[in-house]
């Protein structure tokens, strides 16, 4: 039969699927730019300790607030530390903490959302009201409370950020599950007598995975901004560890006469956020989800 010819597309390996998605993402200008920025930052985070020209914590009062030069590319800060060294190292902590934070947010937010969407009824009502209640608490205040009680170690920051950014994912995952749950294949699985776990794992997750992943990618950039705000307020990483938020906070008073010490971390932070945002959008488009029509919940 002739029909067979066009349906040659066979089941693809997971690797092939992922590379397909990346190729589609990179085929749009915005996706290409976003991916390049993100990849640049990730590579930089890995190699920066090896390429950093100076010691990030070496204080030298005689070199205070030097303008950019051939020796100190981005100049020096108020303690005479090299701004270039501190800038390329400054993204590492933020990137790692928020990456794992987003994973945690995805995991608990996604699973709880799917579960609520599937069981519905009273359980759903109660859980969602609790989530709503948490949504109404300004996260930064709650974060400050947690950090001041438990300290600013990575083991505290990652789960805390993961928790606060997962609340929104609960709603998205629940809404996506509601779209799927009415379909006959779920009814069919129920009628066959599959367990809730089996229905979630086999029937729902493959159909809501894309929406949740895209949401997670967006949350990553928000979390990065949030984490940097914490650092800015002095509740993120502690000095002398280089961090963009901290650097901006330290140098903001010097902006009028030593702009270089504040510009570099700002460019670093905003380019990473723009990179993640563009990548997330391209990712959504490559998966066929149009974020422009669906506002985040």
């Amino acid at each position: 039969m002739k029909l067979d010819n066009i349906y040659k597309e066979e089941k693809k390996s997971n690797f092939a699927k992922v590379s397909d998605i990346i190729i589609t993402m990179a085929s749009r200008p915005s996706g290409f730019i976003g991916l390049s920025i993100l990849v640049f930052h990730v590579i930089l985070a890995f190699i920066s300790p090896f390429i950093a020209p100076y010691d990030f914590k070496a204080i030298n009062p005689s070199l205070m607030l030097q303008a950019p030069s051939a020796e100190y590319w981005f100049g020096t800060d108020d303690l005479g530390r090299d701004v270039f060294t501190r800038t390329i190292l400054g993204g590492r902590t933020a990137l790692t903490i928020t990456f794992f934070g987003s994973l945690i947010a995805l995991l608990w937010g996604g699973l709880l959302g799917i579960f609520c969407g599937l069981v519905g009824g009273k359980t759903d009502d109660i859980v969602m009201r609790i989530v709503d209640a948490f949504l109404s608490i300004p996260w930064i205040l709650a974060m400050l409370l947690i950090v001041s009680l438990l300290g600013t170690s990575t083991e505290v920051l990652i789960p805390a950020l993961g928790f606060f950014y997962g609340k929104g994912i609960v709603r998205v995952a629940r809404a996506a599950t509601h779209d799927v749950i009415a379909k006959d294949f779920i009814v069919s699985a129920r009628a066959r007598g599959h367990s809730n776990f089996s229905i979630i794992w086999n029937e729902i997750i493959p159909n809501v995975r894309d929406a949740i992943l895209v949401e997670g990618a967006m949350r990553w950039s928000w979390m990065l901004l949030g984490f940097s705000s914490l650092s800015f307020l002095g509740f993120g990483v502690s000095p002398p560890t280089p961090d963009w938020g901290l650097m901006i906070s330290n140098a903001r008073g010097l902006m009028s006469f030593a702009y270089w010490s504040v510009i570099a971390p700002i460019v670093g932070l905003s380019s990473l956020i723009i990179g993640i945002n563009l990548t997330a959008d391209a990712f959504a488009k490559a998966l066929g989800i149009d974020r422009s029509t669906k506002a985040p919940v």
Binding site: R192, E203, N207
Partner: peptide, 28 residues
């Protein structure tokens, strides 16, 4: 549960779009 099975009106909705034919028939 096994003795009674259902066939639905719209096969677009009754087959999980993310499963292959093999996975669909393997379930029961």
């Amino acid at each position: 549960l096994r003795i009674i099975q259902l066939i639905f009106q719209n096969p677009d909705e009754s087959l999980n779009p993310n499963h292959t034919v093999e996975e669909i028939i393997a379930q029961p």
